[in-house]
Design a binder for these strands. Structure first.
Ligand SMILES: [Zn+2]
Ligand SMILES: [Zn+2]
Ligand SMILES: [Zn+2]
Ligand SMILES: [Zn+2]
Lengths: 142, 142
DNA sequence: ATTGACCTTAGAGTTGACTCTAAGCTTATA
DNA sequence: TATAAGCTTAGAGTCAACTCTAAGGTCAAT
């Protein structure tokens, strides 16, 4: 049975974050000492590590809640439910990637066009480009 | 001289957002009617379009404030100041791109491994992978 | 017995960029 | 002239995921 700071070291989450996740139903301490201290069993640790893994991949806390409920009762859930969540996340990631790639290209193009020197910016092609409005549009969809 | 809703149509920003940007020093209405209505000159429109362009590229409102002050007095600023901001933004974009690409790969790998079918999830390789913790790590740096 | 490190809680604060509300003027159209 | 559409303000609310604070209780070691 680990104390919260030990679980924190193990997972790389802060104790604050662990309590925060508990409040949102993601992590549990199966035991409490008489004084109220949280104690985490092996199963609790596994669960916390599951949460951390899902978080690392980029799943939202809400998604993780659903994934946890599937993990907890695999019999009552299908692979399709799991792939639905995963595919949806991938779609989000791809959409954001496309936006960022457009931004990247625009920024690179702007950097190439500007001399970057110490002289004054009266001739600056970046300022000109922004003034002209001839920059590619790529704004957040979500 | 345009009213705020006309500027909104022109820029694609909402009137709310235009007022919000004004509060943050990004957009100005050079005239007000006796009743207090904002009126935007051609120069104001250009400025608003500059802001919109910079926003489209992904610059933060703070960055845009700096870019505007350079635009306003090009004599006193250098191309280097402009490229510094641009390069810094590009660095951010590249860092986030790397994270998202890792997420993308992991999600794709997970999706390939799962049958996605309607049968129950007792054998689900996605849940297994999250349980095992063998997922690539790619979390936000900023 | 006294440090000092660790734990508890409820709840407030942070970030960035909006987004909306309420209450009340103003202006344009019919 | 009445109705609707549009404008004003200050200020509150939203989102996600933390992050921190205050005030106090607990525990291990000296
Ligand atoms: Zn130059
Ligand atoms: Zn330049
Ligand atoms: Zn399956
Ligand atoms: Zn599966």
């Amino acid at each position: 049975m680990l104390k919260i700071s030990e679980l924190a070291v193990l997972t790389g989450l802060s104790a604050h974050t662990i309590r925060f996740y508990e409040k949102h139903g993601l992590i549990e301490a199966s035991k409490r000492s008489d004084s109220g201290y949280r104690y985490y069993s092996d199963a609790d640790v596994k669960r916390a590590e599951f949460v951390k893994s899902a978080r690392n991949i980029g799943f939202s806390l809400d998604d993780i809640g659903v994934l946890l409920s599937i993990r907890l009762d695999k019999q009552s859930h299908s692979c399709q439910e799991v792939t639905d969540i995963t595919q949806h996340k991938l779609d989000e990631v791809n959409a954001r990637l496309a936006e960022l790639q457009t931004m990247q290209q625009t920024l690179e193009r702007l950097l190439e066009s500007c001399c970057g020197g110490p002289e004054n910016a009266t001739h600056c092609s970046i300022i000109e480009a922004l003034d002209g409005g001839d920059v590619t549009v790529a704004r957040r969809a979500s």
